[in-house]
Amino acid sequence: MSEISEHIDQNETLIEIKNLQKAFNGNQVLKDINLTIKRSENIVVLGKSGIGKSVLIKCIVGLIQPDSGVLKVFGREVTEMNQKELNDLRTRVGFIFQGNALYDSMTVRENLEFPLRRNKIMKDTKLINELILDVLDSVGLLEAIDKMPSELSGGMKKRIGLARTLILKPEIILYDEPTTGLDPLTAREISNLIVKIQQKYKATSIIITHDLNCAKIASDRLMILHDGVFKAKGSFDELKNSENSWVRSFFETV
């Protein structure tokens, strides 16, 4: 495990998952997931497509209900939260969707205003504008403020999706394949941006990815999900040089 995570292990536990299970139509996607994440830790989850990585992070924000197990975020059991508590949780946990999920009938400004006006009950237009400019500056897209999502490139959409999440200043950010579908250069830019965001906002993050570059740049710890359980855990270098040939081959083939 890296020095960073060892140091942070002494801090508060933000996410605690024990024996988490989830099945869809008899297909057991998550069999026995156990995971503890401390504040400011950055975890990357690797695994084949369709193995249940996205299901795991959707369970964390209450988008999918697990079948059984313990799922605590900020010390509270997510499955026992009512709608208001879930909404409060969701203002503290940001989620970056694989397909960006920008509201395509709204401009970039309106996309960013949307969570802000609804959650912070913010009426001060000047303050809202300042926040929008601040997050757009953080993702390096100030010039896109009045554009529609359809006018943006794939990389720009990723950045705006990130900005929309950052505007609520979440303590945890969940990234669902942030570099999928991007060319290698843009993917690297997004990975570097994730690191920059982690440093600037001191956010804890779980990154679901296939991109080994992204995993290398942005992770403190890596977990490999296979057959509903975490088959391997450790730092990037530990796993890459693992004695287990299956783990090593995974790194060569992904």
Binding site: L63, Q83, R90, F95, G99, F114, R118, N119, R164, L168
Partner: peptide, 14 residues
């Protein structure tokens, strides 16, 4: 399909 409804939900909007 494009997860915009999910995005609304995770941003704390019903």
């Amino acid at each position: 399909v494009t997860e915009q409804i999910d995005a609304m939900e995770v941003s704390g909007t019903n």
